[in-house]
Design a protein around this nucleic acid. Sequence first.
DNA 1: TGACAATACGCACGACCGTTCTATTCTGTT
DNA 2: AACAGAATAGAACGGTCGTGCGTATTGTCA
Lengths: 196, 196
Amino acid sequence: MAKGEETRQAILAKAFELSNVVGVSGLSIGRLAEATGLSKSGLFAHFGSKEALEIAVIGEASRQFVQEVMVPALRAARGEPRIRGLFENWHKWSQREGGCFFVGACSELDDRPGAPRDALMQSQKDWIDELEKAARIAVSEGHFRADVDCAQFAFAMFSIMLGLHAYARFMRDPKADARARDSFEKLLEFSRIRPA
Amino acid sequence: MAKGEETRQAILAKAFELSNVVGVSGLSIGRLAEATGLSKSGLFAHFGSKEALEIAVIGEASRQFVQEVMVPALRAARGEPRIRGLFENWHKWSQREGGCFFVGACSELDDRPGAPRDALMQSQKDWIDELEKAARIAVSEGHFRADVDCAQFAFAMFSIMLGLHAYARFMRDPKADARARDSFEKLLEFSRIRPA
DNA sequence: TGACAATACGCACGACCGTTCTATTCTGTT
DNA sequence: AACAGAATAGAACGGTCGTGCGTATTGTCA
């Protein structure tokens, strides 16, 4: 029982790494088998279908995202510091080879209904909820104004991240970082309690 | 000479329509041939390679984008009205089946160097330049403050569009529109000359 | 109208895809 | 040590992909 689970996890780690570059549906079982040193059919048996593999890859991606982006941010102080932490951690995450897994996967799957899409959507909703929750905490900590619309804040922050991803990864704009940070600071400034 | 160009254009129109849904590299020659009523080899002869077809599709997409998003905005008054026009026209454009061609194509090609990527990048740069130029006009018309960083404005507006695309198309959030408009209005307000 | 080029078709190729079936090897338990 | 069952391998399947070749059809102009 242990051995199977162990190789399955090794497969998923490699699968996530590969699909981060070629996409979740661009990942082929043959290529993944080659990369892991398994046979195509041996690997296939672990999942039963390509779709099940895709779902598992999305699950693995979410697991890693939580561990590398969300969890470390909880160590930052509640309120604005934590929001900055989320931004910085996501930034690091998006600088992996292939960029942010979810940005790519979302545009791959947005016209392909099914279980993989549903799993991916849940992950994205969790992420946006986390942003919104962090904003609410910033309000309750007295960092943000009480009338800040936290869901709207989450949208704005999410958008800036998408803009950064596009400028940096596709346009290869060296100013991408500065642009995103400028927008982010303005968003924070706009949300903060005004000094008297 | 006339006939060939005519069918080529008909092919490209269909090719753009299809690749808007399945992506620029997801578009297969067989399926495109079926959709246009041509034979695979007959269609293939028009382009010579899949890559050349992709480049042509990107060109067709750019042509249509200019015609449906940029040109009509020129009929709006210079300054803020034109900026609003660009936003509204892009919004309509992004509501086609398959969403905005360029959003999808960018994440498809961002890890695949080559001529198609280069062509796509040029289109995107043209679009962002257009946004920046519109902002500069708004400054010179006295709608925006003189110290507005127009390239930064373009980034912010571009990001909001990406956020809208993600919320509406992937998350299927019914509030996507309202969220984007709210952010867009705040961006305009932030850039405008402050009333005394 | 006849000739010549442009255009389109049919067919086949090799590569890779996801999937299935049957064997074989490995692992853990009595 | 023997056995059961899990884990892996191998070969093959039907399909689709992009691409090349030879030939037929169509369009164009003297």
